[in-house]
């Protein structure tokens, strides 16, 4: 049976913060493992946990790419461990598995992603128009919901937040919401029932202008949501409508600011 080496980050200090002083507490540990056809990285981590390192901390739940729990960095790229098949990785060298680098580490492969929850709480929820029917229900066309439903596929794995360089490299946590929440806001802004506008917050509080559309978020999304093309750029265009386009402003003033 073929074997592979898994180089896993161990410790309560993040890989990029582990200076010489911290190295005795944290570092990569190699585990050799026999692999079988069809294995994914999470299977390998589970077997290592069962057979070699019972104290290895890893967060997981569904093993089907739907809960967003097992986010990590595999060979340097943010990925779900349960959706990364070993036969798609080069096994002639160690498979390196690290915790997400953008968020504070808890231990081993587990990070604290609670900052994302605090961002979400700041986003105003859907503000639907009054019901269309006397029984308190609304009427919508599927065609109008298609765009929004793409965004609702999000499993909140936060891989897009992890790879976004505004958070990862520049720690823009106090001025930037990140691609996950631009997708969430796009789902609200484009909703056919919604009457609210979040464009001012997008520009000022959530830092949409900090995004320089490098599409890394789209590249790592395990649900294949077109985050940049279908959420961020349309939101940027709406912000241009509202704040930067003089002709639109003039047109809006003449029309009396009719909602879309």
């Amino acid at each position: 049976m073929p074997s592979a080496i898994f180089r896993i980050w161990r410790g309560a200090v993040a890989p990029r913060d582990a200076g010489p002083a911290a190295r005795h507490d944290a570092g990569f540990v190699d585990y050799s493992l026999e692999i079988t056809p069809g294995m994914v990285v999470l299977d390998a981590v589970h077997r290592i946990q069962a057979e070699q390192a019972p104290d290895l901390a890893v967060r997981w739940n569904c093993k089907a790419g739907k809960c967003g729990s097992c986010s990590a960095e595999i060979n340097g790229m943010p990925r779900l461990m349960c959706m990364t098949r070993l036969n798609h990785l080069p096994l002639d060298r160690p498979v390196q598995i690290e915790p997400m680098k953008t968020f504070p580490i808890v231990r081993d492969l587990v990070t604290d992603v609670s900052w994302n929850y605090s961002v979400k709480r700041r986003i105003r929820p859907l503000a639907p128009r009054p019901p269309d029917a006397a029984d308190g229900t609304w009427r919508m066309q599927q065609q109008d919901m298609d765009r929004v439903q793409e965004f609702r596929k999000c499993i909140e794995c936060y891989l897009c937040q992890d790879v976004c360089h505004v958070l990862r490299e520049h720690q823009g946590f106090d001025a930037f919401a990140g691609p996950r929440f631009f997708t969430h806001i796009a789902a609200l802004e484009m909703h056919p029932l919604d009457r609210d506008s979040r464009l001012r917050e997008l520009r000022e509080e959530f830092g949409l202008g900090l995004c320089n559309i490098t599409k890394c978020c789209t590249k790592v999304c395990p649900e294949y949501i077109h985050i940049t093309d279908n959420a961020i750029i349309p939101l940027k265009e709406r912000v241009v409508d509202e704040f930067y386009d003089p002709l639109k402003k003039l047109f809006r003033r003449k029309k009396g600011s009719a909602p879309a």
Binding site: G19, G76, W115, E169, Q171, F173, A175
Partner: peptide, 18 residues
């Protein structure tokens, strides 16, 4: 938005595990 302490960053051009 709220700040987040993620420790000292040791980036630099080309720093990656890829």
């Amino acid at each position: 938005m709220g700040s987040l302490d993620v420790g000292v960053r040791r980036g630099g051009l080309g720093n990656t595990s890829r």
